[in-house]
Amino acid sequence: KQVQVGDEKYTFDTPEEARKFAEKVAKEKNLKVTEKNGNFHVE
């Protein structure tokens, strides 16, 4: 599963790991997490 933050992409083995990372980054940057096709976008 992938997490996209701006132009950066991070790959994780499980959706749970990806979601945790996305939520942590979103909180730090005051952004929101959206899920698209099983991948997460922080925007």
Rank of each mutant, 00 (worst) to 15 (best):
F12M: 01
Q2K: 07
A22G: 00
E16R: 05
H41I: 15
A18N: 00
K24A: 11
K27V: 08
K1N: 14
A22L: 04
T34D: 05
A22R: 04
E28K: 06
N37P: 00
K27I: 10
K24Y: 09
E23Q: 09
E17Q: 09
G38C: 07
K32D: 06
A26M: 04
K29N: 13
D13L: 09
E35P: 03
T34R: 09
V5W: 11
G38F: 04
Q4E: 07
K36A: 08
V42N: 02
Q2S: 13
K20P: 00
P15F: 13
Y10R: 04
A18I: 00
R19S: 04
E43H: 12
Q2P: 02
Q4W: 15
A26H: 01
T34P: 03
E23N: 09
G38S: 04
K32E: 07
V3N: 01
Q4M: 15
K32P: 06
T14F: 05
P15R: 14
L31S: 08
H41E: 08
K9W: 15
D13T: 10
A22V: 03
K24M: 11
K29W: 13
Q2C: 15
L31Y: 09
V25E: 05
E23T: 07
K9A: 09
P15G: 08
K36R: 13
V5I: 13
V5Q: 02
A26T: 02
V5T: 03
K32V: 13
K9S: 12
H41K: 08
Y10C: 07
E35L: 14
E16D: 11
K29F: 14
E8P: 01
T14Q: 05
E28W: 07
K32T: 12
V33N: 03
H41S: 09
F40M: 05
K24C: 13
R19K: 08
Y10A: 02
F12S: 00
K1Y: 15
E35V: 15
K24N: 08
V25S: 04
V3L: 02
F12V: 00
V5R: 02
E16A: 08
N30Y: 06
H41T: 12
E43A: 11
K27P: 01
N39D: 08
Q2G: 07
N37I: 02
V3F: 03
V5M: 06
V33S: 03
V25Y: 10
T11P: 03
K27F: 12
P15Q: 13
D13R: 10
E35C: 15
V5Y: 10
V33Q: 02
A26K: 02
G38N: 05
V42F: 06
G38W: 01
F40P: 04
N39Q: 12
N30K: 08
E8H: 13
D13Y: 06
T14N: 09
T14P: 01
V3D: 01
T11L: 12
F40Y: 11
V42P: 03
G38K: 02
F40R: 02
R19P: 00
K27C: 12
K36S: 10
N37A: 06
F40W: 12
P15N: 10
A26G: 05
K29R: 13
E35N: 08
E16P: 00
L31P: 02
R19T: 02
L31G: 13
E43P: 05
E17W: 01
K27A: 13
K29S: 09
K20D: 10
V3K: 01
Q2D: 08
V42H: 03
N30G: 15
K20Y: 09
K36T: 09
E23A: 08
V5E: 02
E23G: 04
P15T: 14
F40G: 03
E43T: 12
E43F: 14
E35Q: 10
V33F: 10
A18Y: 01
D7V: 09
L31I: 05
F12C: 05
E16W: 09
A22K: 02
E8I: 14
G6P: 01
E8M: 14
V5H: 05
V33M: 07
K1V: 15
E16T: 06
K27E: 09
G38R: 02
V5G: 01
T14C: 09
E43S: 12
H41V: 15
F40T: 03
K32F: 11
V33A: 05
D13I: 07
G6R: 05
K9T: 15
E17R: 03
L31V: 07
D7P: 11
T11C: 14
D7L: 12
E8W: 12
K24L: 10
L31D: 04
E35A: 06
A26I: 02
Y10F: 12
D7I: 09
T11I: 13
K29E: 08
N37Q: 06
Q4C: 15
G38T: 02
